[in-house]
Simulated assay, not measured.
Amino acid sequence: MATCPQGHTSSDEEFCDVCGREIGGAPVLVADAPPVAEPALPAAGETCQACGAALAGRFCEECGHDSLAAPPVVAQPAQPVVPDVPPVPADRLPEAATWTATVTADRAYFDSVMAVDGPDAAGINFPPYCPDRHFPLAGKEISIGRQSRSRGIHPDIDLIGPPEDPGVSHLHALLLAQEDGSWSIVDLDSANGTAVNEEPKPLRPNVPRALANGDRIYIGAWTRITLRRS
């Protein structure tokens, strides 16, 4: 029996029956495999990379993640797709509607009041000069009248003057804001009443009357209040 360089016994005198090496060849040296290092366990106070729980060993007791493995990949939520909408030009943006009450002296209305020849008509004269006054309307109620400090009356649209219309009651009428953005007028049982546009009869006291853009309110001896929307 022959012996190969690796020490195997072979019946074949040329090549080993076990490893196939040539019987008369040189022996092959095999290097020893390096020792396998033991994996390092997590240190005290270390937390799980998957759920953040405190680790007491290699595997997390909360989620079971292996602390020696790579941290799990967290999928990012998909970002919503925002359509590319061009901006609206500034000159096309809608503007908030605003209302203004313009107070002036109306000669035609004054003449119609004088024609009725009321008890105080003889002592009332049409003002030689009465500049327009503009009152922006804001809020739910706008009171109209003449200020009276002794009675504690301070209307929003104060017609105390000058010139002062003596036919206007201290608390004459009320403008009420409507849900659609418009206004209505209510006469507060004034001494000389309230009229709208050229309607022949004055308003019934304490009954709202809807107003539109451009409507005219007549009170006192010559006062006209025009509502305008812009």
Rank of each mutant, 00 (worst) to 15 (best):
A2P: 13
P5W: 05
D12R: 14
F15P: 04
A40C: 02
L41G: 13
A43L: 07
G45K: 13
T47S: 11
C48P: 02
A53D: 10
L55C: 07
L55N: 04
C60S: 08
E61H: 07
G64F: 06
D66N: 11
L68Y: 02
L68R: 14
A69Y: 10
A70F: 04
V73W: 00
V73N: 01
V74P: 01
A75W: 02
Q76G: 11
P80E: 12
V81L: 14
V82I: 15
D84I: 08
D84G: 10
P87W: 12
P87H: 09
V88R: 09
V88T: 13
A90K: 08
R92K: 06
L93E: 09
W99Y: 04
W99K: 01
W99S: 00
V103F: 00
D106S: 12
A108K: 04
A108H: 04
A108N: 01
F110S: 10
D111Q: 10
S112L: 05
V113I: 08
V116C: 00
V116Y: 00
G118L: 01
P119F: 04
D120M: 03
A121T: 00
C130A: 12
C130H: 15
R133G: 02
P136H: 05
K140F: 03
E141S: 14
G145C: 07
R146Q: 14
R151T: 09
R151L: 15
P155K: 03
V168S: 01
H170T: 08
A173Q: 01
L175H: 05
Q178N: 15
S190A: 12
V196I: 14
E199T: 11
P200I: 04
P202H: 05
L203Q: 07
V207I: 09
A210I: 14
A212E: 12
Y218Q: 06
A221L: 05
T226P: 03
L227E: 03
R229E: 11
